[in-house]
């Protein structure tokens, strides 16, 4: 079989946690850095299973894009949509600043 593309280092896990937007603790990063290589080693066998001629399957039942008729139908009232929001103001979701600079 071909070698697994690469191992996974603690620095990789730090990078992935950033991509996934999860503020992992040092202990969690250490733990994942030891666990993930074993899992990846196990799943890497998929690379030997099929050649280039085998098409990828994204869904078990073929899926076509579906359009619905463009008709008005009942939808959530604003107060229902906002009911679970951590913060809201004037019928809008209230979010923290989206730019990093203060």
């Amino acid at each position: 079989m071909s070698e697994p593309v690469t191992g996974i280092s603690r620095d990789d896990v730090v990078h992935l946690a950033g991509l996934a937007r999860i503020d992992l603790s040092d202990a969690e990063l250490d733990h994942l850095a030891t666990e993930l290589p074993a899992i990846l080693e196990h799943v890497a066998s998929v690379q030997e299973a099929a050649g280039d001629d085998v098409p990828a399957m994204s869904h078990p039942v073929p899926v076509d894009n579906v359009f619905r008729e463009d008709v008005v139908r009942p939808s959530l009232a604003p107060e229902d949509a906002l009911a679970a929001a951590p913060a809201s103001d004037q019928q809008r979701f209230l979010v923290p600043k989206i730019l990093g600079e203060s």
């Binding site: 593309v5 799943v43 890497a44 998929v46 690379q47 299973a49 099929a50 085998v54 098409p55 990828a56 399957m57 994204s58 078990p60």
Partner: peptide, 10 residues
């Protein structure tokens, strides 16, 4: 990884 796994489904 993901691409190979999808081929396994086929």
């Amino acid at each position: 990884y993901y691409g190979s796994a999808q081929k396994v489904r086929t």
